[in-house]
Design a binder for these strands. Structure first.
Lengths: 135, 135
DNA sequence: CGGGATCCGCTCAGATACTG
DNA sequence: CAGTATCTGAGCGGATCCCG
């Protein structure tokens, strides 16, 4: 009788709402793992540049602190998006991060997001000129 | 000499990094307006159900508090994703929120995210069975 | 019903310093 | 270089009360 997932809605008028909460929970799951300000940006850098070292990564992603970057990388590694490679031969130790095959499944997500972001930016500009309330 | 946007990177080895930071800033802009735990979920509900009232919205999106929902709706209204419609005739007042045309430009973003979320969920399940460290 | 105002705890992120 | 440790403050979100 009770669905373990989403017991809250779909009680009364099922069809539309079931479909809705289907999307809802799927998007929720996605946001849960790749949400936040940094995760997708880290993934993008690793995908486009290949092997990247910690400090280089921090320089590429402006505004992120070492602590936060460190935590984000751990998260991403746990979820299988990045791989941590340690070259212990040398001193000081060199550590590189690389994107996994799994992170490549995010390609379409990243593309749709960046395309939308580009369009949105130009729309904003138009708004500034149209909108007379800015004065 | 200096680009007003993203002055940080692309100083040395330009071509790859310029492309990279292009995507980076676009995704950053997108995340800035539709990021967070709630915004996309609110947009999805409004797109799928049409007019939705405040309390109904809160019931649909499990876990959100009235204050947070209120703030998110203001944000979304400012950015042109939702429209607030007040029916002042009746008492108590009825307020409905509807999604705008502009929020429909997010269709592909939402679809790619929800599709990815679905796949990810099934991948997680496989991991649980494969992974002997869970015991 | 649809919120706003207030208080308040608690996490998170920044800054700084330190280590192998 | 690649982080960790510690402290600290802002802010987010919860709970409660209140209003039109």
């Amino acid at each position: 009788m009770e669905n373990p997932i989403n017991t809250s809605v779909e009680i009364q008028d099922a069809p539309c709402r079931a479909n809705c909460s289907e999307n809802l929970s799927a998007v929720e799951d996605a946001i849960y793992v790749i949400g936040g300000k940094w995760k997708l940006k880290i993934i993008i850098v690793l995908q486009e540049l290949g092997n990247v070292r910690f400090n280089e990564l921090q320089r590429m992603i402006s505004g992120i602190s070492a602590k936060v970057l460190s935590n984000e990388l751990k998260d991403l590694e746990l979820n299988g998006f990045v791989k941590r490679v340690v070259h212990a031969e040398q001193t000081p130790v060199v550590v590189e991060y690389i994107s996994t095959d799994y992170s490549r499944t995010l390609k379409t997500v990243i593309m749709s997001l960046s395309e939308w972001g580009r369009k949105h930016k130009s729309n904003i500009r138009e708004d500034v000129f149209e909108n007379t309330s800015v004065r």
